[in-house]
Every structure is written in structure tokens, then in C-alpha cells.
């Protein structure tokens, strides 16, 4: 029995459940589209669908997320071979993490993570 059958079946069922739930309303719910319903939700000052740009902070967060995610992944690898690598592994990973902490301190200093 291919060991991947459970994952493929659950993935398929999950996506099918999502599609059913997502498409259900189209068939079951009443449909009386009025212009008012079609508009997106606006409250307060009626603003034209302006296309102003969002702040770059989100972008910097995403970049730092990737680079620290890679660090987490390498730490998982080290956690797998922790006991047989003993002190040698610890020193090795300590150097790896310290260099990344230097990057982290640079980011803190330049205030890239300051949310206005």
C-alpha cells in the first residue's frame, strides 16, 4: 500500500470540502443581485477606490521571515543530529546563529521593524 495514500486522500477531501463550502451558497442561497449589494463595503468618508500604496513594512517583515525561516530549518536539522555531534555541533551552530543575530541587530538598529 503506497504510504502516500492517506495524504493524497485527505488533501483531496480537504480541497473538495473547501470547494463544496465555497460553492454551496451559489446554488442554495437566493440570488437577487442589486447594485447596492455588489459594491464593496464602505463606511465613513466615501473614498474612491484609491490605489495608494501600502507601507513597505509588510515587505520587510516578509523578507526577514524567509531569512529566519531558513535559520529555523537548519536548527531543526541540527536538533536531529544533536547528540552524536556533541560539542562540535554546538560550536558550529553557535557560529551560524551568532552571524544571523548580527543581521537581526542590524535590522533593529536601522528600525526596519518600527511600525509607525
Amino acid at each position: 500500500m503506497n504510504p502516500y495514500l492517506p495524504i493524497i486522500i485527505i488533501l483531496g477531501l480537504g480541497v473538495a470540502l473547501g470547494l463544496i463550502l465555497s460553492g454551496f451558497a451559489h446554488f442554495l442561497g437566493p440570488r437577487h443581485p442589486t447594485p447596492a449589494k455588489e459594491e464593496i463595503f464602505e463606511c465613513g468618508v466615501p473614498t474612491v477606490a484609491s490605489r495608494e500604496r501600502m507601507s513597505v513594512k509588510f515587505y520587510l517583515t516578509a523578507i526577514l521571515f524567509i531569512l529566519f525561516d531558513i535559520e529555523t530549518v537548519f536548527l531543526f536539522l541540527w536538533a536531529k543530529a544533536f547528540r552524536s555531534l556533541a560539542w562540535f555541533g554546538i560550536v558550529e551552530v553557535a557560529v551560524f546563529v551568532l552571524i544571523l543575530v548580527a543581521g537581526y541587530l542590524y535590522v533593529l538598529k536601522t528600525g526596519a521593524l518600527e511600525w509607525d
Binding site: L60, E71, F96, I99, L100, A102, G103, V107, T110, A112
Partner: peptide, 14 residues
């Protein structure tokens, strides 16, 4: 690799 990641952090933030 860690130095490469450090450079990528500094570069992209700058």
C-alpha cells in the same frame, strides 16, 4: 550560508 543570509538581510533592507 549564514554569511550569505546576513548579506541578503543587509542588502534587501538597505
Amino acid at each position: 550560508v549564514s554569511i550569505l543570509i546576513l548579506l541578503a538581510i543587509v542588502g534587501s533592507v538597505a
